[in-house]
Amino acid sequence: MAKTGITLTRRGLGAMLAVGLLAGGLAGCGNSDTGGDSDSGSSGGNSKLVIGFSQVGAESGWRTANTNSIKEAATTAGYELKFDDAQGKQENQIKAIRNFIQQKVDVIAFSPVVESGWDTVLKEAKDAKIPVILTDRAVDSADKSLYKTFIGSDFVKEGKLAGEWLVKEKSAATGPVNIVELQGTTGAAPANDRKKGFAEAIAANPNLKVVASQSGDFTRAGGKQVMEQFLRANPKIDVLFAHNDDMGLGALEAITAAGKTPGKDITIITVDAVKDGMQALADGKFNFIAECSPLLGPQLMDLAKKVKAGEEVPARVETEETTFTQEQAKTALPNRKY
């Protein structure tokens, strides 16, 4: 009896080992190397769309709202989002894109820190047959086949809208109107384009002169620091054009500390229309805002689905935006989502 018992035990162990090996083989086929669930796109062979998204960072209220919109839209659509924060550094973003390629995601989307220097990594994505979508910011690659589409704003138009409002506002000026400009991150598409659009618009009035222009890196701290420098170097400043609300809000602190009244002593024009900026406009501290909507998430998810399916999409998808004066800001604020 004891001998039979030993034989049965060995058979049982053999069966258990066989089951264990089979289960291990199945698990190895189904799971991705990144620790995600087995229901993932290219990496798992199933139907869930997997999107790798690299964000510029979290430098402003606009950027935070943009990130939240994309994350919420991915959840609503039932897609897997592999999110990366580049912390404002191009090298981090290139590394993230290469990681997405290695993970064999279905679609790569990113908001480029700067315009230049992307051709090599985008060629790698193209060779891996992973479509790329640019969000919010463009790149200056001559080879347009390196990405499928761009979704975002017309930054040149935003700069023009700001300049055109100023031309009308100062139409009665008989002498020089001194303007200081808080630029966004050096080399970034919105900084380049908003500067260009604004300059083209104010050229209609020779009295409007930009006497100082410097990057505040799209941050409140940068806006405050650079505005302090502007105020020390330029005794007469009539207008501030800030490339985003956050820099304008930082500049408010510097202007107030210098004993001047923002919105009255210095006319302030910004871009974005986030809640804090809209509140400053409603309070009369800002004078005009050109909107730049961060709520790109739902449109991005729709485009990702289409490019993965091989459908034709427009080369450029622009968001619908407007402008705000003080009274318009007061009306819009109660229902503002960002």
Rank of each mutant, 00 (worst) to 15 (best):
T75M: 11
S213N: 10
A290E: 01
V113C: 07
Q87P: 05
A233N: 14
A258W: 06
G297R: 01
A15I: 14
A173H: 03
A73D: 03
T149R: 00
T135R: 08
K264S: 14
F324S: 03
I94H: 08
S111Q: 08
T64D: 10
N192L: 10
A191L: 07
Q93V: 12
F230R: 01
S215T: 09
A138L: 13
I237M: 06
E318V: 08
K129H: 12
S42M: 11
I202H: 06
N92G: 04
G45P: 02
I237P: 00
T120Q: 12
V50A: 12
T120W: 07
S293Y: 00
Q183W: 00
K330Q: 06
F83H: 12
F324C: 04
S38C: 13
A258D: 06
K168V: 07
E321C: 01
D272K: 01
L21V: 12
F241S: 07
E59C: 05
G263I: 11
D265E: 06
L8G: 04
R63K: 11
A142C: 12
L231A: 08
V139T: 15
E91Q: 14
I51V: 15
M1F: 11
I133D: 00
R316V: 07
E321F: 07
G216P: 03
A65I: 00
S43E: 09
A15N: 06
V167Y: 12
A332H: 01
R10C: 15
E327S: 14
L161K: 12
Y79A: 12
D119Y: 00
F155K: 03
L333W: 12
R137T: 08
A65Q: 02
L81C: 04
Q225W: 04
E72L: 09
A15M: 14
D127R: 08
L281M: 06
L81W: 10
A18T: 13
Q225S: 15
F110A: 02
L81R: 01
